[in-house]
Design a protein around this nucleic acid. Sequence first.
DNA 1: GAATCACTACTCGGATAGGGTGTGTCCGAGTATACATGG
DNA 2: CCATGTATACTCGGACACACCCTATCCGAGTAGTGATTC
Lengths: 161, 161
Amino acid sequence: MRMGEGVEWALHSCLNLAWAQDGGAVTVARLAAYHDLPAAYLNKQLQALSRAGIVTSVPGPRGGFRLARRPEDVTLMDVVTAIEGPEQAFRCTEIRQQGPHGEMPGNSRRPCAISAAMRRAELAWRRELAARTLADVMSEAERGAPGVPGRVRGWFATASA
Amino acid sequence: MRMGEGVEWALHSCLNLAWAQDGGAVTVARLAAYHDLPAAYLNKQLQALSRAGIVTSVPGPRGGFRLARRPEDVTLMDVVTAIEGPEQAFRCTEIRQQGPHGEMPGNSRRPCAISAAMRRAELAWRRELAARTLADVMSEAERGAPGVPGRVRGWFATASA
DNA sequence: GAATCACTACTCGGATAGGGTGTGTCCGAGTATACATGG
DNA sequence: CCATGTATACTCGGACACACCCTATCCGAGTAGTGATTC
């Protein structure tokens, strides 16, 4: 089970957008250059974030992306869902209903216990992601390395000038 | 983020093996026929379970698979890990270290907050899966449809005869 | 009649192709800016 | 000097190839059983 690489890119870009927020819109080229990522593909991820209402896009010169909501109003679950899609990782295809064995009475009503257990686990994962916002991650990062946010903002400011 | 289809097959097959346990080894053909699955591919999944020590394989005529441990000693996490592999879904590639910005002091020591948050969420998922065993799922299935386990065992008994 | 041996049939095991999704790239639609031009 | 129209450059947005991993399949290695053969 692998999560797409775009999730990591999107999360880092969201943090950078948050730190460089009031410096105007940031182009995808700048965001990509900061981490040496392919700009066109990162653009694709930002489009997904835009469709999800996490960032807003400004076309034309002086355009770019900026955070649509405050960092404390964007959860990690929002970002992951925007990139990876809303469907569950474990997909129950109801194979118990298939096969030559006679129809088991009661099967078609109650969901199979396997599916229920898997969904429970995934719900715990989602709950954990939904409980943590961009602001939480930002403050934790700042606590670990106090100088970084200022540097990030400075880099994006000088870069855009 | 999609989980392989083999996980569902492996879990159902483990349950069937547990219910038909003392009826001797069950061939992969029987297990596959019960759910109308491609036998060769299900065999691949069972090989993975065998390598993980969840089932034991018996070659030759009268051979097949049987559960290596008691159902209460096999967690869902064991099965998922055996099929999907031990690596995490979210892979931190340390993109923060890449790019033209000067080396941020302290970055190389503390893991980035994003990775930490994602790992925390995934740990919750793993913990939930590790807390539930095959025996738990079996008893829950039996509670939902009391007749099923007996039928399953009967079907495998008649099929092998 | 009993033991031995070769043979057969059946099973797992790993090596081998095909398809779908993620990954990476490209060019076009749209807009704010800058400049030349006319009043 | 100021307003206006136009050309331009820059941005996002979606459409287009490539690659990798999951899916699916096949054939070979190994073994228990079976029957014939011999003592």
